[in-house]
Amino acid sequence: MKTNFDLEKLKFPIGKCPKTDDASPNDVATWIATIEQFPAKIKNLTSNLSDEELNWIYRPYGWSIKQVVHHCADSHINSFIRFKLALTEDVPTIKPYEEQLWAELVDGNSNAISPSIQIIEGVHARWVLLLKSLKENELKRQFIHPANIKILSLDETIGVYAWHCNHHLAHIEQALKYKGQF
């Protein structure tokens, strides 16, 4: 394993998630566009990869490309549900999940990424439809994330997930650039 890499840069190739509170309507529209474009971008990056390439990691001790794809499906399903809970309940407490453990389950470690790409395409189609329909007061609806004991509004969460999309696309690009060699 090479050791001349900046591990923090490899972990956060686009930087850590920026502060997303006090979002302007333009910010929200830009973030929704990012979320809308994500399925095509991840599919484009991964559609012709061999099993060997799908197993390339993006940093030392990091996930493989296939695990990143499966994680995005898992994460975005959870986010979509959190939005629906926040829109239909009064400041619900969401259920966190152990993403690192999910990535080690058989479905999170499978070379067959096409089902996760299909999930991402379907969830994002519905999620973007929902996001584009939200009025200003709905964007301010909130949920409680018990893992970090924080109350999050939907508009700031849209920003977090736009960053999440770009963050994991950068991980895949990084794994491809370095051919998983760290």
Rank of each mutant, 00 (worst) to 15 (best):
V123M: 01
N111D: 12
P115F: 02
L105A: 13
L101W: 10
I119S: 09
I113Q: 02
A103Y: 04
I151A: 12
W127K: 04
I158S: 00
N137Q: 14
Q142S: 15
A103V: 06
W102K: 08
I149A: 15
V160Y: 12
N137Y: 08
K132F: 01
L139A: 00
R126W: 06
D107S: 10
K132T: 07
I117M: 09
D107K: 07
Q118C: 12
S133G: 12
L134E: 01
R126T: 13
I144L: 14
L134V: 07
N148A: 05
F143M: 09
V106N: 11
N137K: 14
L154M: 13
R141E: 08
N148L: 07
K140I: 01
V160L: 15
S133F: 05
E99M: 09
Y161I: 03
W127A: 04
S110P: 01
A112F: 09
P146A: 07
I144M: 09
Y161E: 01
I158M: 01
H145V: 09
S114V: 10
S116Q: 03
A112L: 12
E104C: 05
I158H: 00
I149R: 15
A125H: 11
P146Q: 09
E99F: 05
I158W: 00
S114P: 01
I119F: 06
D107M: 09
K150Y: 13
G159T: 07
S153N: 14
E156A: 10
H124A: 06
N148S: 07
E121D: 12
K140R: 11
Q142K: 15
A162L: 02
